[in-house]
Amino acid sequence: MADSSLFQSFFLIFSGAAVVASLALFGRQPLLVAYIALGVLLGPSGFAVIDNLRLLSDMSSVGIIFLLFLLGLDMQPQALVAVLRKATFVGLVSCTIFLGLGFGIGKLFSFTTTESWVIGMALMFSSTIIGIKLLPTTVLHHKHLGELMVGLLLFQDFVAIVCLMVLLSDNTGDMQIWQLALSFGSLPLLIVFAWLIVKYILLPLFNRFDRFHEYVFLLALGWCMGMAELAEIVGLSREIGAFIGGITLATSRISQYIALSLKPLRDFFLILFFFSLGAQFKLAMLPEILLPALVTATAVLLVKPVVFHYLLGARSEHKILSWDIGFRLGQISEFSLLIALLAYAQNLIGSAASHLIQATAILTFLVSSYIVVMNFPNPIATKDELRRD
């Protein structure tokens, strides 16, 4: 791709993203859905204005690395243990139920066993963007509802990391047990190495030169990318390496400054990620996966709120609170999209299964956000009595 065409691609993506993001905000829609729609519109299945997606796809994967690095930075160990203790039972049981639901739907529509398990994996998770961004700030930080939401989403994040390790344990299309064991065996070694480097090298450097903001930014960026590459070398994934890099820095007094510094860079690459996801979506596949996608999305939207309601009720949570959380988590996740892309890249699933997960994600994002905006307190509610900042 020549320099001029790369510039033109960036112009079309980010100028177009600014326009569709404005329309999405007016229409009370999640921004990531707007970015995916723009990708479909400008990609090969639409007007084919941007038809060389390889470079943009490679660049967009950096956004996922930053996303997991920042996720690790936000996981303070003490608070993490406390909040996960409350959410572990609900998280374990709900993930098992949703895994079985996805597997059953996959087999119903004649997908292979492996594809059905991957579909089940994709259904286990709920969207952090919809779950947290549509939660009023005062509730998120000071109310029991916020604690439970964060705990459940963090538990799902850990499960997602395990799923990524399973998917990346082999690239031949067969999940070999010995190779998966080797990947898990290298994980503690990588964690110990990262902890030693942070304690004896990075933290002294941060403490000595923390006045130089550019240096802090570069050192954090180098650490994130270095851990991502090291994890790739030892047989894990770049995403897992970035997560470990972030969580080993989480106790540092400068971790929140690093997180704030990297968020704009993360958002830049995530826009590319969701755009390339939409651009790679083949509209020609729609007739083949439309019925399975509608069935899967309907099952998610109906089953998830009910499951969370009864599981939280079993933990002595109030009825209104349990329904509130159930509907706020009643969709699949950004991690589901990542799982679909990685599984397809590893030849574990075919194009139809990958597109089924992508279509289900888009449908559940749309419907779930409408349900929350119209019925529960949130920052962008159309009703005055529901609007909470």
Rank of each mutant, 00 (worst) to 15 (best):
G185V: 11
M124F: 06
S351P: 07
M225N: 11
G173D: 07
L154D: 04
M285E: 14
T364C: 00
F11W: 07
D74E: 15
L168E: 11
R54E: 15
V372L: 03
G235R: 00
D324M: 00
L23P: 06
V373N: 04
G16D: 07
Y344T: 05
A122Q: 05
L196Q: 14
I36T: 03
I13T: 10
M59L: 15
L196H: 11
L168R: 09
L277G: 00
E385T: 10
V216C: 00
L342Q: 15
Q358V: 15
I105P: 03
A299K: 11
S116N: 00
A250D: 01
I362G: 02
L290A: 13
L218G: 00
A381D: 07
R211G: 09
I197C: 12
N171V: 08
K282L: 13
T172M: 06
A2G: 15
A299I: 10
S354W: 07
V306H: 08
D170S: 15
D210G: 05
E334Q: 08
A352I: 13
L140C: 11
H144F: 12
A160Y: 06
A293W: 12
V139D: 12
L236K: 02
E288W: 14
Q331C: 02
Q8T: 12
L338H: 04
A359M: 14
G106I: 12
Q358Y: 05
L221G: 00
V234E: 04
V373S: 06
I320H: 04
L68Y: 01
K133S: 10
N207E: 15
F193E: 05
A352E: 15
A279I: 11
D324W: 05
F335G: 05
C163N: 02
A24V: 13
L41F: 14
A160N: 01
D174Y: 06
A228W: 05
T128M: 01
L164F: 10
T248Y: 01
T137P: 01
W178N: 14
A82I: 06
R266N: 08
M121A: 12
T96D: 05
T114M: 12
L152Q: 12
L218C: 00
F327R: 03
K86A: 11
R315I: 06
Y257W: 09
F327I: 11
L53P: 03
F376K: 13
L168C: 09
L70P: 04
I161W: 10
L302M: 13
I105A: 02
I339V: 15
T251V: 13
G278I: 04
V367K: 01
S57N: 14
G173V: 03
F243M: 06
P136H: 07
D3I: 11
W323D: 10
F327Y: 14
F103V: 01
G72D: 10
M149F: 08
K282Q: 14
L182M: 11
I254P: 10
L41C: 12
R388P: 04
I201C: 11
Q331G: 07
L12F: 13
Y310L: 08
P204W: 12
L363G: 00
Q358A: 09
